[in-house]
Nucleic acid binder design. Sequence first.
DNA 1: ACTTGCACATACCAATTAGTATGTTCATCT
DNA 2: AGATGAACATACTAATTGGTATGTGCAAGT
Lengths: 202, 202
Amino acid sequence: MIDTRQNILEKNYEAMHRQGFQGVRPDKVISELGITKGAFYHYFPSKLELGYAVVDEIIGPRYTGLWKQLDYHQGHPVEGIVWCLEGIRSGMNATQCELGCPLNNLINEMAPLDEGFRKRLQAIMEAMHSAISRALQRAADKGLLNKNIDADNYAYFILAAMEGCFSVGKSMQDKGAFDAAMDALIATLREIKRESQKANGQ
Amino acid sequence: MIDTRQNILEKNYEAMHRQGFQGVRPDKVISELGITKGAFYHYFPSKLELGYAVVDEIIGPRYTGLWKQLDYHQGHPVEGIVWCLEGIRSGMNATQCELGCPLNNLINEMAPLDEGFRKRLQAIMEAMHSAISRALQRAADKGLLNKNIDADNYAYFILAAMEGCFSVGKSMQDKGAFDAAMDALIATLREIKRESQKANGQ
DNA sequence: ACTTGCACATACCAATTAGTATGTTCATCT
DNA sequence: AGATGAACATACTAATTGGTATGTGCAAGT
């Protein structure tokens, strides 16, 4: 093993993705990795701190990294958002669809149960939300978006619809349902773009 | 206690709502109820079967009951869908917002872990989906909806957006965010209704 | 050469978990 | 009156869980 700590993090991330944090059994993950408790508790003081590390070092960066790119996107901001959504979709296959969105899973499991998780997950959502909101605001400032769309509120809607696509795909265990919902979301975004152009006489 | 079985069901439903199914500790719920293991295992053979019963007898009927009313709704089918969404929203307060949607929670926790849960949750989602899809199809048949909207796919989107509102509200622990996303969803539905009317020259 | 400390391994443990096995009470039926 | 069965209560248990306490090998610094 080149980097034991990283291996522990990644295996536990996979276990959390499949079984939820409460369902993770450190003993099992340890034996799968072929290491012992000594190694595990050398790097992490407890299961809870390991969970935090998974969020901080794996889940968080993955999401914030993607949406941060919105700020540097050239062209119509709505197309930037669509580009991010397509990026997420392209990372999905049938198996990923069954397991759902790691962030969405963890929010629904842990947000009401543990303050440490909640703050971390909220920070990730807030980063995504503000990135989307800024993109919408840029569009509005350029006159590319209908004035009666509130960027902040509409960003929550986009975020909600996106996370919901995962829930639908997971419940139906059908990537077709995930894609259908995602397509409709993207179509809706392009519709408000078109309508705004018409309204502004462009 | 008038109906011990029902009390067991409801207390466990509350525990599942807060902590997830894996987080439920029958012992704890039992002692909260002031009963003993004898009573619990008299009515339910196992924790898993109790979980199934909670879905079958509490969660399922609550959701299918609401959306079934769409079939009897008079007026524009899109307004029927909005009516259902408003019904869901009216049942939410700050606490409910923190705990999220019981169905969404359970899907994200249990769908990949247990076939019995998965089938039951899928059936509930399918019932909601088909109710929404039928409403959209009725609208289309009456010429009230744009022809290029696929009822089946768009119904998945509505379902996704709705469930996503709960995830957003839960992660932000803010009913304001839930409401913002919900408002944008409703506005979007009314927008496609208006656009269809224009497109059809009404 | 000797100490120091990181990176693990081994062995043990208390509490919890999801049960089971076996009573007991009481209403109802015959 | 006696039998029967539903509706619980009590006591016990094997396995699991999330650790802790302690030991060891080995590389680096002095």
